[in-house]
């Protein structure tokens, strides 16, 4: 039985706890912000107008969740504002998994984008299922403010998961073309999949302190079981367990894709970080 931590002050009192909690919150916030940013690049260009509208809501939810997690970091004294955390950290301070920083496809969002809907859906589904499993663990977190936030976030995530499952099944079953596109997307996402389950150097402490009950093993086991169920339902072959990745985003090691993402993300903010926008 792990001790309940009800306030930021209690978390700060124990340096081990503080460090594990801060790392965990950066993982949660950065995953959501980076994917929400990628999603937002699609706006106005999605394959179907109704889907464009629906997908833009998902992008908003992800950014909104990130803002809420950054808020918990502000409460822990990590910065003065959520914006300072989102807009002024160098790439090696980011804790997102590599899967989420990858572009939607070749090209830039303003110039000749050749975004890939097969990859977009594949990546989003794999992440949304992971996020749901992680949130289910977090609602039992020893850190009460996080447990309370996770319960709220989980409600919105139910829609994301339903949305992505509907697409996966549809693409898998419709035609050989759509199935091939989805499978290519899954293969590409699978390369980065291992890193999604990394909790970084603080992972064992997150589990031991009950900040993320069950730790990596619980996430992986639950995730795999549910993903396999959907793959079977959609008639998709199981690609096998993912191989370890070279770069662990949770340890602050990223691809050039993150730097390319942070450029536009912070472009206006950097004009004058002290100004009010």
């Amino acid at each position: 039985m792990t001790a309940r931590i009800e306030t930021p002050a209690q978390a700060l009192a124990d340096p081990t706890c503080r460090q594990a909690l801060v790392e965990l919150l950066f993982q949660l916030a950065d995953d959501d912000l980076v994917l929400g940013h990628r999603d937002s690049e699609w706006v106005g260009l999605a394959p179907h107008i109704e889907e464009d509208v629906a997908f833009a809501s998902i992008a908003q939810d992800e950014v909104g969740h990130a803002a809420a997690y950054y808020g918990l970091l502000v409460d822990l004294g990590e910065a003065e504002s959520a914006d300072a955390l989102a807009y002024s950290r160098p790439p090696d301070a980011w804790r997102c998994a590599l899967l989420l920083e990858r572009p939607n496809g070749p090209g830039h969002y303003l110039e000749n984008p050749q975004f890939d809907w097969g990859y977009t859906i594949a990546r989003h589904y794999l992440y949304d299922l992971f996020e749901m499993v992680r949130l289910e663990a977090l609602v039992e977190s020893a850190y009460l403010p996080l447990a309370q936030l996770a319960a709220k976030v989980r409600r919105e995530e139910r829609y994301h998961l339903l949305h992505m499952e509907t697409w996966v099944k549809r693409l898998a079953r419709h035609s050989s073309v759509s199935r091939a596109r989805l499978q290519a997307g899954l293969e590409k996402a699978w390369v980065d999949l291992y890193g999604l389950f990394s909790l970084g150097p603080e992972g064992p402490a997150m589990a031991a302190l009950g900040l993320l009950p069950g730790g990596r093993d619980r996430l992986w086991q639950t995730w795999r079981e549910r993903a396999q169920t959907l793959f079977a339902e959609a008639g998709l072959p199981w690609p096998g367990d993912p191989s370890p990745v070279m770069l662990d985003g949770r340890a602050g090691r990223h691809s050039a894709d993150l730097e390319a993402l942070l450029g536009p993300l912070t472009e206006v903010y950097r004009l004058d970080p002290t100004a009010r926008w």
């Binding site: 950014v63 803002a67 914006d83 206006v268």
Partner: peptide, 22 residues
């Protein structure tokens, strides 16, 4: 300007606005 909005609040609001246009 959606990916470049200078604060999280602005990013959310302009996303919602462009979404409404669609």
């Amino acid at each position: 300007w959606v990916p470049r909005a200078p604060t999280l609040h602005r990013k959310l609001a302009i996303l919602a606005k462009v979404q409404d246009e669609l």
